[in-house]
């Protein structure tokens, strides 16, 4: 039974000047899950995170974290929340270990050198603990940001575009770190532009655009609901019409009958099975084909489709 850890209802934020960044957002996050929030630039992802973390003052709605109202119990709640913002933001002249200790203290946790060492070692920062942050590479600086966010052992961690602008190797390294955090029971909400990241990491995915949540569901359920397979058979002799055995499948003819196009499936493998059946049927009917191209839709295709055809769903 999923245990809600974050419950957002009717959240609104209108900035000075009238820009509506959040427009009635409803969202529930369960303990222990990794939730990916996808959306284009300006969709409201960072404003949503900022509203929960205290960086942004919402203009409407209610946020409950760990069952407590954020508006009244913000001090208790924030002790258990960690945030890794998009930008590399810290005192560049300070030492790594001092900045991590500072973060732990600021969130009200007692000094614990063993825990600080554990965090730094887990992020391969222990050897750099006495280095000034400005001397580190971009990737290492991003790790320092994560170390600072983890220093007080948060139960709920927000990662705002954690791998934006980092190379592939570091991105995969970050994913490993996130996996380790999941194993420790930390609930993670990450925003990302990289669909691959959501496919790789998330248990559930939410799509936000223009301040509204368009879709929230299990990653696999989204694929099953909206995923599809596309196949193109190149027919040797043009067909005037679809052969009768094929009419039960989602197929049609293109390019003067020389191309048989299949669009179907549900992201669970059904599409691949039907394409194989079609190939057998064509052979059985004596229809020669010289080529077959298949393509599975990705979360990215679904994401793009959603942005063009908004779907209204509840969280």
């Amino acid at each position: 039974m999923p245990e809600p850890i974050l419950n957002i209802r009717g959240l609104e934020k209108t900035y000075k000047g009238g820009v509506k960044a959040l427009d009635g957002v409803d969202l529930t996050i369960n303990r222990g899950e990794i939730f990916a929030l996808l959306g284009p630039n300006g969709a409201g992802k960072t404003t949503l995170i900022g509203s929960v973390c205290g960086l942004v003052r919402p203009t409407g709605g209610k946020i409950e974290v760990f069952g407590q109202d954020l508006a009244t119990s913000w001090k208790n709640v924030r002790r258990q929340i960690g945030l890794v913002p998009q930008e590399l933001s810290f005192d560049m002249f300070d030492k790594v270990i001092r900045q991590v200790r500072y973060s732990r203290g600021m969130f009200g946790s007692a000094p614990d050198e063993a825990r600080i060492e554990e965090v730094l070692r887990s992020l391969s920062l222990w050897d750099k603990r006495n280095a000034a942050i400005r001397e580190l590479s971009g990737g290492m600086k991003r790790r320092v940001m994560i170390a600072k966010a983890l220093a007080h052992d948060p139960q709920l961690l927000f990662l705002d575009e954690p791998t934006a602008g980092v190379d592939v190797e570091l991105r995969r390294d970050m994913w490993r770190q996130i996996d380790m955090l999941r194993d420790r029971g930390v609930t993670i909400i990450l925003t990302t532009h990289y669909i691959e990241e959501a496919e790789e990491m998330a248990d559930r995915v939410g799509v936000i655009a223009k301040g509204r949540i368009l879709l929230v569901d299990d990653k696999d359920a989204i694929m099953a609901k909206l995923g599809r397979t596309e196949a193109h058979f190149t027919i040797d002799s043009p067909l005037a019409e679809l052969p009768a055995p094929l009419t039960g499948y989602p197929v049609h003819l293109e390019e003067g009958g020389t191309s048989l196009v299949y669009r179907g499936g549900d992201g669970t493998g059904k599409g691949k099975r039907e394409v194989a059946e079609l190939a057998q049927l064509l052979t059985r009917e004596g229809i020669a084909f010289s080529g077959l191209e298949t393509q599975e839709s990705t979360l990215e295709d679904i994401f793009v489709d959603l942005l063009h055809e908004p779907v209204e769903t509840a969280a």
Binding site: C53, L55, L83, F90, S103
Partner: peptide, 15 residues
């Protein structure tokens, strides 16, 4: 300085 570098986020998100 924290405002300038962006590190103010930590102060604002802390208890």
């Amino acid at each position: 300085m924290p405002k300038f570098t962006g590190a103010i986020y930590e102060l604002l998100s802390a208890p």
